[in-house]
Amino acid sequence: MRLIDSHSHLFLEEFAEDLPQVMERAREAGVTHIFMPNIDSTTIEPMLRVCSAYKGYCFPMIGLHPTSVDAGYEKELEIVAEELSSPDKYVAIGEIGMDLYWDKTFRKEQELALDKQFRWALEYDLPVVIHCREAFDCIYKVLEPYRNTPLRGIFHSFTGTREEAARIMEFSDFLIGINGVVTFKKSALPEVLKNIPLERIVLETDSPYLTPVPNRGKRNESAYVKDTLIKVSEVYGELPEKVAQVTSENALKVFGMLK
């Protein structure tokens, strides 16, 4: 059974002490690919170092995370642009998006940064990986003008409503990322998922965050994508092997790696 973790931050310091063991547990769980989203200029080097050490297993993205957008965001974007100019270095532009949960101070700057990175995604023919927190309508407004373009990607860590899922599905080349939140006791995601075709979702962990049941309270890691798989299989009434196959193909397709 092949599993893909479409969103994992294994390059963060939380994994500094035991990364080889973390990777080994992921392999034992059946994980064949781990996709790593960038945060800002401070994380590029550690992310690339991990992806280089586990070449062919871990795959880097480049982008500016919305919570790193501030008054100096244009300088950060210049670094992203420079990184993008190296051919075939990155598999996606991410993690990008908008986050109005903590702070709305740089809302306009977040919109501008998102739009610019959408344009780069089209220029370089790369998928985008979108972070959305308390900002769905704002992101949708920035995304709307790209409706009839080849823009494609993933709405990562989706926790939205049935209506929001339906609006994402209007964009035929966008997928919905499901992680440990679906296993949480009070999560509405199982009900929302019943209206989303299996062909439109990918699995992820968002390690070290959002650890699924039964490991809640522990640091998340890529091996735990299997716990999310089990819950998603229950929701769809499908065998785990089937859900693993479909979601893995979905991920490889959006990242341009489906053979």
Rank of each mutant, 00 (worst) to 15 (best):
T32W: 09
D115A: 05
P60W: 10
E170W: 01
Y124I: 15
A121M: 05
V80T: 14
K55R: 09
E191G: 03
I96M: 12
Y146P: 00
R49D: 14
R216P: 06
E163K: 01
R216S: 12
L203W: 05
I34F: 06
L189P: 02
E28Q: 09
L64R: 10
V254W: 00
T43S: 13
F158K: 12
V91I: 08
R119A: 08
V91N: 02
K186M: 01
F11A: 11
T161L: 07
V50K: 14
H156V: 00
G72N: 10
S222K: 00
F106R: 05
E76S: 08
A121N: 05
S222G: 05
E82M: 02
P240T: 04
M23N: 03
M47V: 15
A81M: 03
R167Q: 02
S41F: 07
G63R: 09
G153H: 05
I139K: 08
A16F: 15
R27L: 10
K104R: 09
T43D: 08
L114N: 08
I139T: 02
S157D: 03
Q21V: 08
A26L: 12
M23S: 13
A16V: 05
A71G: 04
F155P: 00
P87Y: 10
S233C: 13
A251H: 09
S85K: 11
P20W: 10
